[in-house]
Computed example of a mutant assay.
Amino acid sequence: MARVRRMLDACAELLDEGGYAALSTTRIAERAGVAIGSVYQFFPDKKAITQALGLRYLDIFSARVSARLSGEAFDHWTDGVDAIIDEYIDMHRTVPGFRSLHFGDVVDVQLLDGGADNNRVIADRLRDIVAGVPGAPDGGQLDRAAAVAVEAADAVLKLAFRHDADGDADLIAEAKLLVRSYLGRHFAAE
């Protein structure tokens, strides 16, 4: 629905301008050009709006990763790690609000799903995508490996963007090396 999309877009813009602390439903309504009642018709508060935005980002990220992995040939399934990280980096640089919200960890570590940490939700989504890549392992080992890889990449990529709006290229390269090396060694026999 166009009205909800405008509210989410306004939320993203406002997050970039002032962060979560400065965000309010009133400001979102004003920026989106809707009545405050319209905001409350769909979202009870600013956290609910940022949750919807985080879920939208997760869907966009998943679609971009899926398209990239299905559109390129890799020598080994772990080579797709660079493509996954590149999509995250590109969203961080170009998608309004993503830099401020990521996948919601700025607001609540369980914003995407009240029963799981945000990184677990992302790891599960990436696991499902990677499991469809030829040669990828399946099962419990991939579950654990995806969780560890997402946590490790998240930490290093946060560091890469902490003082550099475009992301420190050397730290981004280190994140890729770290995750590829871990996954490559973890599943070397496969």
Results as ranks from 00 to 15, higher is better:
103 F>Q: 01
103 F>N: 01
104 G>R: 04
106 V>F: 03
107 V>C: 07
110 Q>W: 05
110 Q>S: 14
112 L>I: 09
112 L>Q: 12
113 D>K: 13
113 D>Q: 12
113 D>E: 14
114 G>I: 11
114 G>C: 08
115 G>D: 15
115 G>C: 13
116 A>F: 11
116 A>P: 06
117 D>R: 15
117 D>S: 13
118 N>W: 08
118 N>M: 11
119 N>P: 02
119 N>W: 14
120 R>T: 15
123 A>T: 12
124 D>A: 10
124 D>T: 08
125 R>G: 02
125 R>Y: 03
126 L>Y: 09
128 D>G: 07
129 I>W: 01
133 V>F: 09
135 G>E: 06
137 P>T: 09
139 G>Q: 09
140 G>C: 00
141 Q>W: 07
141 Q>V: 04
147 A>H: 09
150 V>L: 08
150 V>D: 09
150 V>Q: 10
151 E>S: 15
152 A>K: 04
152 A>W: 05
152 A>G: 10
154 D>Q: 11
154 D>G: 13
154 D>K: 12
156 V>H: 07
157 L>M: 13
157 L>K: 04
159 L>K: 10
160 A>P: 02
160 A>N: 02
160 A>V: 01
162 R>L: 13
163 H>C: 05
164 D>I: 00
165 A>F: 01
172 I>F: 00
172 I>Y: 01
174 E>W: 01
175 A>N: 10
175 A>H: 04
177 L>M: 03
177 L>K: 02
178 L>M: 14
179 V>I: 07
181 S>W: 00
182 Y>M: 12
